[in-house]
Amino acid sequence: MNELVLPNDTNTFGNLMGGRLLYWMDICAAMAAQKHCSHVVVTASVDNVSFKHPIKLGDAVMIEARVTRGFNTSVEVRLDVWAQDLPSGTKIKSNEAYYTFVAIDRDGNTIIVPELVPESKHEQLLYEGALRRRQLRLILGGKMQPDDATELKALFMESQKGA
Rank of each mutant, 00 (worst) to 15 (best):
M157W: 12
Q34V: 02
V49T: 08
V5T: 02
D9W: 05
I104Y: 08
P54A: 04
S38N: 13
K153C: 09
R132P: 01
P87E: 03
E123S: 06
N15Q: 13
A29K: 06
L125Y: 05
I112G: 09
G58A: 02
C37K: 02
V40S: 11
D107K: 08
Q124S: 12
E119G: 07
D9G: 05
A29G: 15
P114F: 00
G58K: 01
L140I: 10
T10L: 08
G108Q: 13
Q160H: 12
V75W: 00
S120P: 01
S94W: 00
M144A: 00
V46H: 11
M157Q: 12
M1W: 02
I92A: 10
Q84H: 09
N109R: 14
F156H: 13
L126R: 09
M144P: 01
K153H: 13
P87A: 10
L140Q: 13
N72T: 09
S38Q: 15
V81F: 05
A29H: 03
L126H: 09
V102R: 00
T90Q: 12
M62D: 14
T12R: 10
N95Q: 04
V117L: 11
D59G: 02
G141W: 04
M17K: 10
E64R: 14
M144E: 04
V67K: 02
T12C: 10
V61G: 03
E128W: 06
K91D: 06
V81Y: 02
S38F: 12
I104D: 10
N72D: 14
P87G: 10
I111K: 14
L22I: 08
Y98G: 00
G162I: 14
V61Y: 01
W24M: 09
E96T: 09
L86T: 13
G142N: 01
K153A: 14
R20H: 07
V81N: 01
F101H: 00
L140P: 02
L155I: 07
K91F: 11
G70L: 01
A29Y: 03
I92H: 12
G141K: 09
D47F: 08
N8P: 05
K56C: 08
D107W: 09
W82H: 14
V42C: 09
E158K: 12
V41F: 06
